[in-house]
């Protein structure tokens, strides 16, 4: 296990996967778009606007999944002092922030025709907005230190503290009276969504997840190269 915590080793395994993951991303997103925009029926209450769900819900899941990954990566890095965990957290943050932004914007575009408003300060929307600010805070903090190792440690602590927001987002629709509807896919008694709508949703989610992995590998390569560049320059400065 510790062998793979070396970023070089990790990328030696991850790099060959890159073309496969990219292919899967294109395939799933293409299928998701076709099913979501053409093949799926309109909703009996929401009409055609239900098609926004096929990007809104997967991006919301990704916003939380990426943050959860960052929290786990940050925790392992803090405990075992492996550089890979911090690098994964740092490489993930812009992707997670982007998915959160997509979730907020598409939600707004869905809320206007269905609720009659772009935004309400209900618990679900507010807790997702806080998630967005946590991402932004992490990105600002990780780049704020001259000593990059210190920046990564400090930022990972922020991610771990902020992880308390994840269950708040998930259960906000149960704990408070929100305008946002309650969960209809991840429920104790199974999904309450018809298969014709569930499939595009799940396929698009897989596409989004693969997209995250692709960008994660690309950004890890950047991070690794940046570390080596820094080491070479430090070596030169020391002479």
């Amino acid at each position: 296990m510790h062998k793979y915590a070396n970023p070089n080793q990790f990328l030696r395994i991850a790099n060959p996967l890159l073309p496969w993951l990219s292919g899967l991303t294109v395939l799933c997103m293409g299928m998701g778009l076709y099913l979501g925009l053409f093949a799926s029926p309109k909703d009996y209450q929401q009409g055609e606007t239900v098609r926004i769900m096929y990007i809104h819900v997967p991006s919301a899941w990704m916003a939380m999944f990426v943050y959860g990954s960052m929290a786990m990566a940050g925790a392992t890095a803090l405990i075992w002092r492996h550089p890979l965990g911090h690098m994964i957290a740092k490489a993930s943050a812009p992707v997670g922030a982007s998915f959160t932004m997509i979730c907020l914007l598409t939600g707004s575009l869905w809320g206007k025709p269905m609720w009659g408003t772009w935004w309400v300060w209900d618990a679900r929307l507010t807790s997702v907005l806080i998630l967005f600010f946590l991402y932004i805070g992490y990105i600002a903090l990780v780049n704020a230190f001259d000593d990059s190792a210190r920046g990564q440690r400090t930022a990972s602590v922020l991610v771990l503290v902020g992880a308390v927001n994840l269950p708040i987002i998930k259960f906000s629709v149960d704990w408070w009276n929100t305008l946002h509807q309650p969960a209809s896919v991840v429920r104790m008694d199974g999904p309450a969504v018809h298969p014709s709508m569930l499939w595009p949703l799940l396929i698009m989610s897989i596409g989004f997840t693969m997209f995250y992995f692709v960008v994660l590998i690309l950004r890890l390569r950047s991070e690794l190269a940046a570390t080596k560049i820094r080491n070479i320059r430090l070596g030169q400065a020391g002479e």
């Binding site: 925009l37 606007t49 926004i52 990007i55 598409t106 575009l109 025709p113 692709v214 960008v215």
Partner: peptide, 17 residues
């Protein structure tokens, strides 16, 4: 609304990539 939502998603994901 629908095409704006899909357009924004495409632009943001492509920009990240």
């Amino acid at each position: 609304y629908i095409w704006s939502a899909y357009g924004i998603t495409t632009i943001v994901l492509l920009a990240v990539l």
